[in-house]
Design a binder for these strands. Sequence first.
DNA 1: ATTCCAGTTGAGAATCTTTGCAACTGACGC
DNA 2: GCGTCAGTTGCAAAGATTCTCAACTGGAAT
Lengths: 144, 144
Amino acid sequence: MKNIMNQKPDYEKELRNAGIRITRPRRIILDILTSTEDHPDAMKIFHRASEIDDSISLSTVYRTMNLLEEMGAIHRHAFSGGPSRFEQAHGEHHDHLIDIDTGAVIEFKSEKIEQLQEEIARSLGYDIVHHRLELYARKINRSS
Amino acid sequence: MKNIMNQKPDYEKELRNAGIRITRPRRIILDILTSTEDHPDAMKIFHRASEIDDSISLSTVYRTMNLLEEMGAIHRHAFSGGPSRFEQAHGEHHDHLIDIDTGAVIEFKSEKIEQLQEEIARSLGYDIVHHRLELYARKINRSS
DNA sequence: ATTCCAGTTGAGAATCTTTGCAACTGACGC
DNA sequence: GCGTCAGTTGCAAAGATTCTCAACTGGAAT
Ligand SMILES: [Mn+2]
Ligand SMILES: [Mn+2]
Ligand SMILES: [Zn+2]
Ligand SMILES: [Zn+2]
């Protein structure tokens, strides 16, 4: 379900719970993401991180972005004509509805769908490791 | 607008009608796409095309994919952990399960899930225009 | 058939992202 | 604290995709 609260999610705890180590680069990158208002790309995050610890590599930024994306901790926005940009999300798994007119992103979670996915995968002989569900939609009832 | 027929679409005609030239590379690439059953990536299409005309460049394959995608003639699947893969857009809608160990793509269709998606969107005040559902999964019962 | 030119191409550079690998280190148990 | 080792890192290299641009060409007009 959607998280209404506006407090900082404890990503370190989530990482620990997922059996993932809290390393210095990850802590720095998480700090940058949780304290920024814009949508930086990997290179921008890399530059900001480098100011704090100049041994951090761009590879690690990309790897951390992929990790956090799979965890559902961040959103990747791949808009045309440029590199992917990132912003923090809420920690719990959820899927996305994207307003194709405005680009707005609405989060939702359907236990039923999650369950159906499991059933389908199983019937095909598979276990789901992760998944991606995105609904590209248009507002009902817009004036024409 | 939507075409119900189940015949091979005449992409060359569509291209002409859109004021786009039918060139030798484009004809070859279209032939490959309309006669394949799988989900090839750009490099695979490039290799197949090269067997027919070894002067075709990878750039042109990418450019043509972008062109056909914009026309709605093909779907691009940006599965995680690999290059984009393509398929013709003519068939019935389906979703994909990706074997994360082998890269194999299995197509499936769940009327129930499709319906739930509609319900969710509607409850959020939206109509779905298109969507993307990808299950990244691992075979059950592998070498124990 | 010839001319013409905007659309298209191939080649390589540029950009963006992932990956292989040896070195390093966080988390856990002693 | 110390040892251990799988997880993680930085670096270099590869991989994926887009872009630049001079050369080429499809197809319309003559
Ligand atoms: Mn989200
Ligand atoms: Mn398919
Ligand atoms: Zn989901
Ligand atoms: Zn579907």
